[in-house]
């Protein structure tokens, strides 16, 4: 599904990400862990087109996508959420999801202006489709609430369905349970399973080890921009380097 090959990102002299190669397999949940400042989010930004890698390749669904603009990456079938919640705060829950559908829709300026029959049909489809997504995460009673007024956990959920609304092949989740309460966290496992059942592959950055170890099929651990370890969760969890990186053990 997604393969990176020796991806390196430099900002001036600083190497933020150093020769990282990962492989996200179709239909799996792949985890990306690592201490703060390890370069996980930078790496995500590179995959989703925000940054262009200084070296290396990103291959998504058989196509080279490094250096593609974010909106093109989205249209190619990759959606994402953000570490810092990046909703359209003044838009309603429903409108946020509508924007998420943007790349699937065909109406253009002229058909919007003149309300051509195709456009009307499409807008009807958009409304029905957004209903489906609001139900998917239980936000249907809040359709007209401004996104910025939701609780933190609900905002996370909205970000995820906004991403899913583009019907991606792969979704990148950047710390999806940060800010959720314990009940929401508990329900999150099940939500991830339901996302997989939609045929969407997941790549997830997460600090919550219980969640990562419980749901991920494969885990990569980054430290100081380099891959420290990889493997199934049990293996990574017991890797002495990983333990040292997390607990700050001696070099």
């Amino acid at each position: 599904m997604l393969k990176t090959d020796g991806v390196t990102i430099r900002f001036g002299g600083l190497v933020a990400v150093n020769k990282v190669s990962i492989h996200v397999r179709k239909g799996q949940i792949t985890g990306l862990i690592g201490p703060n400042g390890a370069g996980k989010t930078t790496f995500f930004n590179c995959i989703s087109g925000v940054y262009k890698p200084s070296e290396g390749h990103v291959v998504f669904d058989g196509k080279n996508i490094e250096g593609m603009r974010p909106h093109k990456v989205n249209a190619a079938g990759m959606a994402r959420t953000y570490q810092v919640i990046n909703l359209f705060r003044k838009m309603t829950v429903q409108e946020n999801i509508m924007v998420g559908m943007h790349s699937r829709l065909k109406s253009n300026f002229w058909s919007d202006l003149l309300r051509l029959p195709n456009q009307r049909k499409e807008e009807k489809f958009v409304r029905e489709e957004t209903e489906k997504w609001m139900e998917f995460v239980g936000l249907q009673d809040m359709r007209d609430h401004e996104a910025g007024s939701l609780s933190y956990g609900k905002q996370r959920l909205l970000e995820i369905v906004r991403g899913l609304a583009s019907e991606p092949k792969l979704i990148l989740l950047d710390e999806p349970v940060a800010g959720m309460n314990s009940k929401e966290k508990e329900e999150f496992d099940a939500l991830l399973r339901r996302i997989l059942n939609l045929g969407v592959t997941i790549l997830m950055i997460e600090h919550d080890m219980k969640l990562v170890m419980g749901v991920c099929d494969y885990v990569y651990c980054l430290e100081h921009g380099s891959l420290l370890a990889e493997g199934v969760p049990e293996v990574v969890q017991n890797n002495p380097d990983v333990i040292a990186a997390y607990l700050g053990g001696d070099e």
Binding site: H71, Y82, F88, V99, L113, Q119
Partner: peptide, 22 residues
């Protein structure tokens, strides 16, 4: 419309708008 929603999305959060395919 789709166009207007793209406008507002850009106003609210340009980075996220781009990430959503706008």
């Amino acid at each position: 419309s789709r166009t207007g929603r793209a406008f507002i999305a850009i106003r609210e959060n340009t980075q996220a708008a781009e990430g959503m395919g706008v």
